[in-house]
């Protein structure tokens, strides 16, 4: 069976300058395949500039690959006709990083839900559209009377982002690509958005590509993980395996720099856990203090072993 979405050795180079001679590689030789059989959550982890967002935009057809191809059900995204493009959008949806920019400030939040309903004829009859919207909002844990009819700036970042999840849900897609969905949301509200996303996967059988720079949340919700560094994939595999036995130095660095791990296996951290083992609550506080006091290590130390760096600046 052909996979739902497949990236085949995709490279993206941005050109800039007067004569288009300045080149910046954003993603190098990236391949990925997402099937339709079992819904899974794949986390894509990497620091800023590592090509995460470019990858998302390529998979969504918002950018065209310089080399390689992105295939939807075996068909190149560039050659999709009108009907196939509709099918593509119906199957693959996205949630973006900035929950404020995603809304047109000119319209009430209903607008983002109404457009897909109208464009894809989701409501069987006129009156059904409101019911659909309410259903989708309830699915992400929002109370429709408190959200519908309001302007985006009247809602919190977490609420807005959950509306974006509801929007994606409306289309009943097979895959949602979430590009840093919680990085611009207050820490206290992150869990709500992540829960909605996890529900999409568990309750509605939707696959998820969860893009983040935060290894902890990736570990929390995903089954598989891809680590991007300097525009290339440096490590990929089941999340337990990658986090417990990281092969690549960058992954090792990422894992060892989690301030107060409860589940990682890094030796240095283990000592800490032992030291404060009897007072777990105290341990957490002390850990936070330590993290705050320690100055960030110089670059040479930050990257334990040297490896090739792409032109990311």
């Amino acid at each position: 069976m052909t996979p739902l979405l497949q990236a085949h050795q995709v490279t993206k180079v941005f050109r800039s300058g007067m004569t288009q001679r300045k080149q910046t590689v954003a993603l190098r030789d990236f391949s990925l395949s997402i099937g339709t059989d079992a819904p899974s959550i794949i986390a894509v982890v990497g620091e800023s500039g590592s090509g995460k967002s470019t990858m998302a935009r390529l998979l969504l057809g918002l950018e065209r690959p310089t080399v390689g191809e992105v295939l939807y059900a075996g068909e190149d995204l560039r050659t999709l006709n009108r009907a196939r493009r509709r099918a593509f959008l119906n199957d693959i949806q996205a949630v973006f990083q900035d929950p404020f920019a995603s809304f047109n400030p000119f319209y009430k939040v209903d607008h983002v839900l109404e457009v897909p309903i109208n464009k894809f004829g989701l409501a069987p009859e006129r009156g059904a559209s409101r019911a659909l919207m309410e259903e989708a909002l309830q699915a992400v844990g929002l109370r429709p009377p408190e959200t519908l009819g309001r302007y985006p700036h009247q809602l919190s970042g977490g609420q807005r982002q959950r509306i974006m999840v509801a929007r994606a849900l409306l289309m009943q897609p097979k895959l949602i690509i979430a590009d840093e969905p919680v990085s611009m949301i207050d820490a206290s509200l992150r869990a709500t958005v992540l829960d909605s996303l996890r529900q999409c996967n568990e309750d509605f059988g939707i696959s998820l590509i969860y893009i983040t720079h935060d290894l902890t949340t990736a570990y929390q919700i995903s089954h598989d993980i891809i680590v991007l560094y300097a525009c290339s994939v440096v490590e990929a595999g089941a999340v337990e395996q990658v986090v417990k036995r990281p092969q690549h130095p960058y992954t090792q660095l990422l894992i060892s720099s989690i301030p107060c791990p409860t589940r990682t296996a890094s030796g240095r951290m283990k000592r800490h856990r032992l030291k404060w083992a009897r007072r777990p609550d105290l341990g957490r506080v002390a850990c936070l203090h330590r993290a705050a006091r320690t100055p960030s290590p110089p670059v040479s130390k930050r990257r334990p072993r040297s490896f090739r760096r792409g032109r990311i600046n």
Binding site: L89, D98, A101, S102, F103, N104, P116, K119
Partner: peptide, 24 residues
């Protein structure tokens, strides 16, 4: 801005985006 991309993902065409998303 993000809402233009969201509109594209919601199935709006270029002309519709110009009129309904940007024009206001």
């Amino acid at each position: 801005r993000g809402f233009v991309e969201i509109a594209r993902l919601s199935g709006m065409s270029g002309l519709e985006i110009v009129f309904f998303e940007l024009m206001p």
